[in-house]
Write a protein that binds this DNA or RNA. Structure first.
Length: 299
DNA sequence: TTGCTGCCCTGAAAGC
DNA sequence: TGCTTTCAGGGCAGCA
């Protein structure tokens, strides 16, 4: 399940493989993967002839900056007088649950759940494979702001590694909220990029029970939670994505299983810190794992 | 305004 | 053995 560390790992892989090469043609095998434009034909026509300049990430969204060839060959940073900024369009991607972006040769065996094929010069292909079909792609035409087309971008809170995501910001946002801290961490508007796995791991790391109401969190708990979020995400990026799931990098390398979760998907197993049995409950429609001893409930 | 539930989807796993 | 049910979850619509 791709969360911020996995998406960031994919972004880095795409940077190293797809840039400065022209898109020759596009095939859409499942229409509803294309969220915008409304007609997949416009998506196909829009991408044709474009060149990827760079890949950006906001939360779990990937955004390729596209330039019309041939001026794409120039460096993206060299702004020449008279150059039109409106020549920039974007390709947005959200992997959701099972989406994979793979940099392959077009002749390689086509997986059953292939949804979109983007062909590049030099006999290369960026292939979007997505078993559960929740993943989406957007083409943002030149002159449009990505957030006006990819509406989810408007609801994103600060990046967890940005200065905006400070201890005081987190404390302020949680202070008056009645909802459960687990639910709050899954809210992309609080901080962008956390999913179910890293929410549970962050709460374990900071010793907070997942059903604690945000407004009931003590100052010292929030002082532990803030760095816990940053460290859990950062350490996962360091090992190249998650160690907990079937994540696959753009070049098909299976996610490394080197790391181990403290609580996620460990119901019934002994806590790695204290030996207490890891518990599981359903919160906000999501499975939630915690150690009843290391993460005591409030009161 | 805030917070919560259900839904979308497929295949693996569990239940009977 | 084989059929049915449950489960996984990101984001969003709809509702209290």
């Amino acid at each position: 399940v791709p969360e911020l560390p996995e998406v960031e790992t994919v972004r880095r892989g795409l940077e190293q493989t797809t840039c400065q090469q022209q898109i020759t043609h596009v095939e859409v095998l499942l229409d509803r993967t294309i969220a915008a434009p409304a007609d997949p034909k416009d998506f196909i026509d829009g991408l044709k002839g474009q060149t990827i300049v760079e890949w950006q990430r906001r939360g779990k969204y990937l955004l390729a900056v596209l330039k019309s060839s041939p001026d794409a060959a120039k460096s993206s940073s060299s702004i020449t007088p008279g150059s039109t900024p409106s020549s920039t369009s974007y390709l947005g991607v959200h992997l959701r649950m099972t989406g994979q972006l793979l940099w392959v040769h077009p002749e390689s065996a086509l997986p059953k759940h292939t949804r979109v094929r983007i062909f590049f010069e030099g006999n290369q292909e960026l292939r979007f494979v997505d078993q559960r079909t929740f993943g989406q792609m957007w083409w943002v035409r030149a002159g449009q702001e990505p957030a006006t087309v990819i509406s989810g971008l408007n609801n994103l809170g600060p990046e967890p590694f940005s200065p905006e995501f400070s201890l005081s910001y987190l404390a302020k946002k949680l202070k008056h909220s009645q909802r459960l801290i687990k639910s709050a961490l899954l809210d992309q508007g609080l901080v962008a990029g956390i999913g179910n796995i890293y929410a549970d791991e962050s709460l374990f790391r900071s010793g907070i029970h997942p059903t604690t109401r945000c407004c009931d969190l003590g100052a010292e708990q929030i002082q532990r939670l803030h760095p816990a979020i940053v460290e859990v995400l950062a350490s996962s990026i360091d090992i190249g994505g998650t160690s907990f799931s079937t994540f696959v990098s753009v070049t098909g390398v299976n996610g490394n299983y080197g790391g181990e979760s403290w609580v996620y998907n460990r119901k019934g197993q002994p806590c790695r810190r204290c030996g207490q049995t890891i518990a599981r409950l359903k919160l906000a429609g999501r499975s939630t794992h915690f150690c009843p001893n290391c993460q005591p409930s409030a009161r």
